[in-house]
Every structure is written in structure tokens, then in C-alpha cells.
Nucleic acid binder design. Structure first.
Length: 482
DNA sequence: ATGTCC
């Protein structure tokens, strides 16, 4: 059954609340014609409509142009719920809690790096553990885990893995308050014990890039970015730890649905009222997993820096390898938003969506107040990634949110099928000029550029719709993957 | 995303 959808303008579409039984509000999708044609191929519009049935949902369910099919909610969804009448759903955060992106800048230029690119990428690949189930150099036990889970990236910095300055330019300073280590299951501890400081697999990567194009010189300047400059983009999350937290609480909430009299079109939307004990426990555990992910990206930052220092024989000062910003794109947060002229505290679920707070917002680091919050949008391995900034438009329309990536057009299985007999590693080097090292046998096939939408199309829609602004385009030259 | 099935 096709979902009825009406076009509002060049970049906005609407699924009316009478499209499906149980919808409480409309669903709004940001896309142009070309992206909408790609979106129609999977269940994501159905899932966007389903998300509008969640109890206590405020104003509308939103979907970004990189939307694709996920568990329960589509990936690329933004759903805000009311703390009194609303629910929290783990499917609205995703399995990889605080999957996110961190951008590092350097003082190096393309000309300096290209002659030593292979040495650099090989060094990164040798130093940073990649792949499924890999172990890192940091060990957590139930006894010593409390600190990183409560303090996030700060804990890593205190262990000597990074600089205090790194925390200034991370979303929430790399730590969300309200983590409850006691709400995390023994199994999650077991899975997360040896995985701090590991990249993971799937679409996770560490990429060496060059600043290829600047759209907003003033904002780029504030971010410390210039043409021809080498940057590093890290995409990773909370590994098996967050995955287990999600698994545990989906089960707990599914069991509790009857108790709270919640009716859903899809069991994958399992949720409980925000005021319930299940919801409090989930949020405590989710925040612990979010802090695990920020600690993880901090560890990866430190080791990437060490490799750069060794390869280029530069002092930390001359290398200038600072954190530009770090965003969470799978998380639920309590935030203040204006709804119908009234300020309200809401739980904003962002699943495959990035916070995009406008200039002047009090949660931004002072040095970025004038330009708005940096938004990091990774694309595919071959083409490009983007830095955007948040806008007043996002605050008005999408609870301060924008896109998070390119979005898949092929399932993993379809991508492997389409890449059969092809040497993706060679193609990346020959046609895109990207030197890549990967540990998984099929990971390059799953992640090949044509398995994704063109991220340029995605960010252009967000820019033109006014929910973020394009600042810089980054071109990959080297990559390590799981 | 993920000890890609406890």
C-alpha cells in the first residue's frame, strides 16, 4: 500500500495525519524530486508515517533528505515528544547510540601530505583497531567503567588521551549528564569491555581529506579551515556496548507495552511513557552509551594525532591538529524549543539526524556563537563530505536538526551483489584518488560510493530549505575502514 | 550498527 504524500514546495513533502490509522500529527519530509524518487524505493515513508503515531509526539514527525529504512523509525528521523504525555523509543535513537562524527583540522596541506599518504594511511590502519569485534588498548571493568560512562571524553583526556582543549569544541563537551552506569546490563559491560578506542565496521571510518571548496569564507575562517588544507574525519559510535543497551531496552519496553496500554503499528517502535521506570532506566543507560561513544572518538583522536606526529615529524603546535567539532547523530536529548509561541522542554530523538543549533545559541562554544553550530556530514568513500552550520530555520522547523550523511540507496546485500567481481579498492584509487585500507572482506563492496545517494544533493536540499548552511566541502584522499 | 543467531 503506497503512502499518500503531498508536495508542499520545492523541498518539502507532507504525509497527512489521515494517511494511516493512529497518526497523531503529519510527517514532513525534506527532499527534492530526485531524492524523493530514491526515497520511495524502501519502507522509509511508511516508517515516517508510523513514527507520527508515537504518543505525545509534538507538531510533526520529520525526515531528512538522507532518510532510509531503519529499525522502527527510518534513519534520518527527528521526533520530539512531550515529557508529560510522551514516550521515549530506543528505535528513535538507533542501535548505535551516539554514533557520530568528529572533524580534526591540521596545518598540513595536500602538497605536503600526498607524497607520504600511503605511509600515513598504513600507519593509521596499523594503530587504530578496525573491524567487527576488535579489541582496543583500553580495558573497562564493571568497577572502573563508572568514570568514562559518567564523564565521557573528559575521562580519556585525564588518562592522557588528548588535550583539555579537545573538549571545548565537542557537542555537550563530549559528555551528556544523567548517565546511569547501574542501568547498564552485565552483558553490555562484557561486550564493551575491550572495545573502547576501536573504530568498528560497517559505515564507520577514519578518513584523510582535503578542503576542496569553501562556500562561506567567514564561517570557514572561524572553524580554522582553508583551501587545500588536510583534515581528518572520524565516524564511529558506542560499538557493542551501545548495541547491547539498545537490545536490552527494546525488549524491556516491548514487554511493558501492554502495561501502559500503548498501541503501535509496528513492534519495532516499542516505547514507554517518559515518566515510566523503563524510560528512566533506558535514558540513564543511553546516556552512559553516549558517553562511551564520546570517549571512544576521543581515544581515536589521540592515536590519529600520534600517527600524524610520527609521519610528519612535527610538534603538536606546528601540526595544529585540533578538534573542529564532534556531533552525535543517534541520540535523544531534553532540549528547550518554541512550539506555537511557547517555550517547552521536549525530548528530541535524532536518529541519523544532526543537531543544527543557530548562531547565538547558549549551548555553542563561545568561539562558534557567531556562525552557528558546526554540522558534520560524511558522504561516501569516494566523493565528498561537508561541513554545514546550524540556522534559525532549523530551530523553527525541525527542532534544530538537519541531515547526517548521504543515506544508502542500496542495501548491503544489494551492494555486494552489484560489486561482484569488481576491485573496489582499485576503483577508489584510480577513479577517486583515495587510498583505502579495510579489514573486512566485503566492507568495501557494501560501502562503495554507488551504494549511497550523492551527499551533495542531500546537503543542497538542507541548505536551500534553510535548515542548515553549507560552509566547506571536503574531498577524501585516504581512508581506513572496518 | 552488531561477538551480522543465545
Amino acid at each position: 500500500m503506497a503512502i499518500p504524500i503531498e508536495r508542499l514546495d520545492e523541498y518539502r513533502w507532507r504525509i497527512p495525519p489521515d494517511a494511516k490509522p493512529g497518526m497523531r500529527v503529519p510527517a514532513i519530509i525534506f527532499a527534492d524530486e530526485k531524492l524523493m524518487d530514491q526515497i520511495r524505493h524502501d519502507l522509509s515513508l511508511e516508517q515516517a508515517a508510523n513514527s507520527a503515531t508515537l504518543p505525545g509526539i509534538v507538531r510533526a514527525a520529520y525526515a531528512m533528505p538522507d532518510i532510509h529504512q531503519g529499525y522502527g523509525l527510518p534513519i534520518g528521523a527527528v521526533v520530539a515528544t512531550d515529557p508529560e504525555t510522551g514516550v521515549v523509543t530506543p528505535g528513535g535513537v538507533g542501535y548505535d547510540i551516539n554514533c557520530g562524527v568528529r572533524l580534526l583540522r591540521t596545518e598540513l596541506t595536500r602538497t605536503e601530505v600526498l607524497p607520504r599518504l600511503k605511509e600515513l594511511v598504513n600507519g593509521l590502519f596499523a594503530t587504530i583497531p578496525t573491524g567487527v569485534g576488535t579489541q582496543g588498548k583500553v580495558r573497562l571493568t564493571r568497577e572502573n567503567a563508572r568514570k568514562p560512562l559518567e564523564q565521557g571524553a573528559r575521562w580519556a583526556v585525564e588518562q592522557g588521551l588528548g588535550e583539555p582543549e579537545d573538549l571545548v569544541t565537542a557537542e555537550a563537551s563530549g559528555c551528556i549528564a544523567g548517565a546511569d552506569p547501574d542501568a547498564v546490563s552485565p552483558r553490555a559491560y562484557e561486550r564493551g569491555r575491550a572495545q573502547l578506542g576501536t573504530l568498528g565496521s560497517g559505515n564507520h571510518f577514519l578518513e584523510v581529506q582535503v578542503v576542496e571548496k569553501i562556500y562561506d569564507e567567514q564561517a570557514a575562517n572561524v572553524l580554522g579551515l582553508f583551501p587545500g588544507q588536510v583534515t581528518v574525519l572520524i565516524h564511529s559510535g558506542s560499538r557493542g556496548f551501545g548495541h547491547q543497551v539498545c537490545t536490552d531496552y527494546l525488549a524491556s519496553m516491548e514487554r511493558a507495552l501492554k502495561k501502559y496500554g500503548i498501541q503501535l503499528p509496528d513492534r519495532q517502535l516499542a516505547c514507554t511513557p517518559l515518566r515510566s521506570e523503563e524510560a528512566s532506566a533506558y535514558l540513564g543507560a543511553m546516556r552512559a552509551a553516549a558517553n562511551y561513544a564520546w570517549t571512544n572518538r576521543q581515544c581515536l583522536t589521540h592515536w590519529a594525532r600520534e600517527v600524524f606526529q610520527q609521519v610528519f615529524r612535527k610538534s603538536p603546535r606546528d601540526l595544529g591538529m585540533w578538534v573542529v567539532y564532534d556531533v552525535a547523530h543517534n541520540i535523544a536529548k531534553l532540549e528547550e524549543h518554541e512550539v506555537d509561541g511557547k517555550k517547552r522542554r521536549l525530548l528530541v530523538h535524532r536518529k541519523g539526524a544532526t543537531r543544527a543549533f543557530p548562531p547565538g545559541h547558549p549551548e555553542l562554544p563561545e568561539r562558534y556563537r557567531s556562525i552557528g553550530q558546526p554540522v558534520l556530514v560524511p558522504g561516501d568513500m569516494g566523493r565528498a563530505s561537508f561541513v554545514l552550520v546550524g540556522t534559525d530555520g532549523a530551530m523553527r522547523e525541525t527542532f534544530g536538526s538537519t541531515c547526517h550523511g548521504a543515506g544508502r540507496v542500496m542495501s548491503r546485500a544489494a551492494a555486494i551483489r552489484a560489486a561482484r567481481g569488481r576491485a573496489i579498492e582499485r576503483e577508489l584509487e584510480d577513479t577517486h584518488g583515495v587510498y583505502v585500507r579495510a579489514s573486512g572482506r566485503d566492507s568495501l563492496k557494501e560501502e562503495m560510493p554507488e551504494a549511497y545517494k550523492n551527499v551533495q544533493d542531500v546537503v543542497t536540499v538542507c541548505h536551500n530549505a534553510g535548515i542548515s548552511r553549507m560552509v566547506v566541502k571536503l574531498k577524501p584522499i585516504g581512508c581506513i575502514k572496518g
